[in-house]
Amino acid sequence: MSVIQLCNIAYTYPSGITALKAISLSIKQGEKVVLMGSNGSGKSSLCLLLAGVIKPDEGDYLIKGQRFRYCRKHRQQLCRSIGYVFQDPDVQVVATHVDEDVAFGLRNIGLKEEEVQQRITEYLELTGISELRKKAVHTLSYGQKKQVALAGVLAMEPEIVMLDEPFAWLDYRQSQRLLAVLSQLSESGKTVIVSTHDSQFAHEWADRALIMQNGQLKADGSVREVFAREQLLEELDIAPVKQNMSCLHHS
């Protein structure tokens, strides 16, 4: 079953820069998808559109077959269906302390406090930052803030999780924890979409690769098929993979 469908989507920023041109795609439940492309290719704009942050000028966005209408009711529903982890945690982490930040969205949807506290405990543990629970956010490293942002998104228990360059600024231990989290999300049946420049990660982790260039979707297929097309990768400024190397070392 398709959980996301885009039909001839186009978007131009108020500045006049055209970010997306005639984007059509369908993402199935449980897929592991990487979104790739050079800087300025449109992949971040596509993430923002999928998260409901920007509204297309043309085309339709469907969630489970229902057209997304960008009204308050639909935006609230989208927040429960899709969790988006921004590349920059400073635009996402809003509270002064870690536990309060993870609780923010949960309280906004009206969960009872007992459930809120249970989810804080569960998702801080999942992301490997239980020891940061009472820490002030301003004392954290950039990588730790990214983990807090991830915990806050996962605590909402969305069906679809999107992450924009999630490995940026993470150290080795944090990266291994994130790989484990991605595996667990996939095993639990979640749809996971990761925007990344890391070809090695993309080739080893994902089922499917979407590659953007100049606001257009230039490649869409299994990672095996896409990364076998060396000339296409070169044209799209995507690094080839090294067959004897692996980035997935977590147990």
Rank of each mutant, 00 (worst) to 15 (best):
I4E: 03
N8A: 13
T12Q: 15
Y13K: 13
P14I: 07
T18M: 09
I23A: 05
I23P: 01
Q29V: 10
L35A: 02
G37K: 06
G37C: 04
G40V: 04
G40I: 06
G42W: 05
G42V: 00
K43R: 14
S45L: 08
L46Y: 09
C47R: 00
G59M: 07
D60L: 12
I63E: 10
Q76W: 10
Q77T: 11
Q87P: 06
V94E: 03
T96Q: 13
F104A: 12
N108M: 11
N108I: 06
L111V: 10
E115Q: 14
Y123I: 06
E131I: 02
E131K: 12
A136H: 13
Q144C: 02
K145P: 00
Q147M: 15
A149L: 04
E157V: 07
E159L: 06
M162V: 05
D164W: 09
E165G: 05
W169L: 11
D171S: 04
R173W: 09
R173Y: 11
S175Q: 14
V181P: 09
Q184M: 11
S188C: 05
V192S: 09
I193V: 15
T196S: 12
H203S: 13
W205V: 06
I211A: 03
K218M: 15
A228F: 01
L236F: 09
V241N: 00
